[in-house]
């Protein structure tokens, strides 16, 4: 076992940003492990993508291309990955921590009897051994995992943990592997984009509201316009999701989404520990609350004590004017 194998995800025919990040970090880790950086592209027709991945510094880009792989299935994609792991013998396999990759990575690790770390925020190689850092317990515990020798490691990495690969003319090659015969236990009947989908985890700016907004109408009157003025998405505490004001999609926290945007604005949100679990790693936090003792102020870079009904319309107007939106 040597080197690193990166599972490439695609977005509309291009390499996903997170996969470019993994190629960037993979380069460094492969060098420390003394092996090659290889990549794996699985899909219905992946020739175009493979050449993009060569340019990201892969020594060998393995492709497994088959009509049955055009949409994701656990059985198909795990079989493709297992065939590649057999060929490439990586010490470490990297993929993102998206829902689909968790479905895939955990199944693959189980089949390979590999070490597994999910939602990894940092990776190191020390003395030839991989270690992975991952938060748990709503971000209140930062764990470092080490792995049993002689087994591969599968690490599913949180987006935006590493810088993207710069790209280099590495002179890498493309090797196509056949999909081994596989029993497909699932059949995908339909894939539909989510209506009004908010991928909060991708948003650079999030404005969240809580019970301090008083009611549903007031939430929609005050929160989405502010989010729009900032060019961001809107989120919510569980209290108002459970009250039926806002769909679950928008819930931030322990039982909702974990986000780390560049700016998180919490308005009329108390900052319960389960809410903090989902947003405390945001790069900047602005809290607006009428109670100066609200726990949200303890994690805020900027706190504004005031009534949301007064502050939010002023803030939206000020931003529209200053940002020219």
């Amino acid at each position: 076992m040597a080197g690193v194998l990166v599972y490439i995800e695609q977005v509309g025919g291009d390499v996903a940003a997170v996969s470019r990040e993994l190629m960037g970090k993979g380069q460094e880790l492969a060098a420390s492990l003394g092996g090659p950086l290889n990549a794996l592209v699985v899909g219905g027709d992946v020739a175009g993508l493979a050449s993009q991945v060569v340019a990201l510094g892969a020594a060998t880009v393995y492709t497994v291309s088959d009509a049955s792989l055009a949409t994701y299935t656990t059985d198909g994609h795990v079989a493709a990955a297992k065939a590649t792991v057999e060929a490439a013998q990586p010490a470490l396999m990297l993929a993102s921590a998206s829902f689909q990759m968790r479905d895939f990575g955990a199944a693959l690790a189980a089949d390979l009897d590999a070490g597994l770390a999910v939602d990894v925020t940092d990776l190191k190689v020390e003395g030839g051994a991989v270690s992975a850092v991952r938060p748990s317990h709503g971000g209140n515990v930062i764990n470092t995992y080490t792995f049993a020798a002689g087994r591969p490691v599968v690490a599913l990495v949180r987006k935006q943990s590493f810088a993207e690969a710069a790209g280099s003319a590495s002179g890498g090659t493309v090797t196509s592997l056949p999909l081994p015969a596989t029993t497909m236990r699932t059949q995908v009947n339909n894939v539909a984009p989510k209506t009004g989908a908010v991928n909060l985890t991708d948003a650079a700016i999030i404005v969240s509201g809580g019970r301090g907004l008083s009611d549903k109408d007031n939430y929609y009157k005050l929160i989405p316009p502010l989010a729009e003025a900032l060019g961001g998405a809107y989120g919510a505490s569980r209290a108002i999701v459970d009250a039926g004001w806002v769909p679950y999609e928008h819930q931030v926290g322990q039982t909702g989404k974990t986000v780390s945007p560049k700016l998180y604005v919490a308005a009329g949100v108390s900052g319960a520990i389960q809410h903090l679990a989902g947003m405390r790693t945001s790069r900047n936090i602005v809290a607006i609350n009428k109670d100066p003792e609200a726990p949200i102020f303890r994690v805020a870079n900027f706190g504004l004590v005031g009534d949301v009904n007064e502050v939010l319309p002023l803030l939206t107007a000020e931003l529209r004017q200053r940002l020219g939106r």
Binding site: T71, Y72, S98, F99, Q100, R185, T186, Q187, V188, N189, N190, V191, A192, P193, K194, A197, N199, T201, D202
Partner: peptide
């Protein structure tokens, strides 16, 4: 229905 980040897949499993 599998509710992923941006898509909903309808899947039949044995």
């Amino acid at each position: 229905e599998r509710h992923l980040e941006t898509v909903v897949e309808t899947v039949t499993a044995s």
